[in-house]
Amino acid sequence: MPILETVGLAKRFGGIAATNEVSLAVEKGARQALIGPNGAGKTTFINLLTGVLKPTGGRILLNGADITALDPHHRVRLGMARTFQINQLFADLTPIESIGLAVSERAGGGGDWWRRVGGRATITREIAAIVERFGLTDVMRERTAVLPYGKQRLLEIALAFACRPRLLLLDEPAAGVPEAERHELLATIAALPKDVTVLLIEHDMDLVFSFADRISVLVNGALFADGAPDEVARDPRVKAVYLGEESDV
């Protein structure tokens, strides 16, 4: 059974089909990439998967359970977490607090109003492990707003990771990261544990082909091609779409 499956998923904004009957499956443990030219509806698709937008048709199944009608935070509980293409961080909190918050929520203590944050050893241990994994140790006590952009991008992934997802949706994780900070970010993504399934939305073809074991192509809101990286790379129609886009730029 795939970890994630969409069945005829659709989203119309007025007369425009931003997501057009997409039926996509992501297998457990996969490293799948979702690519497509600008305006293909990739971010809309992610927003549908995570519940930020409500679909106008179709269903979303997570581990076989229908989650189409669930609120975003319920989907997180069920093991699906995401990052954002444009940083969505807690500007006034430090990385320790932000990660501590996500870990507390995941551990079921998020509504606890009596105990101090980080008062449980299991929680602090998990926070420390995440801070270390994402290379945030030296900035963990600083306000998020003043962190270098590369560190903010790492925190963006760390927050999703702190939800201990079975399925992690990465929305253009490397977008805008300067060359000098890029290597650390890509290495961190490559080192994500194998039991976490990753669906990567990306523009950067180098990253896609070095990372993904399966590639799905979205064009005009519809699933256009889907297969192993070399198959997709050879597909003349995919080439045409990308060449067409590049001549626009």
């Binding site: 609120d71 977490a81 954002f84 500007a91 918050l101 929520e105 998020g110 109003w113």
Partner: peptide, 30 residues
């Protein structure tokens, strides 16, 4: 006591960025 608890921290987070708060599993409305 309340504002130093995980509950209190989640309030600061949802004020700061409700979209992200929901995305890390915080039931914002509740």
């Amino acid at each position: 006591r309340i504002v130093r608890s995980p509950f209190g921290l989640s309030l600061v987070a949802l004020k700061d960025n409700p979209l992200r708060a929901e995305a890390v599993g915080i039931p914002v409305n509740a």
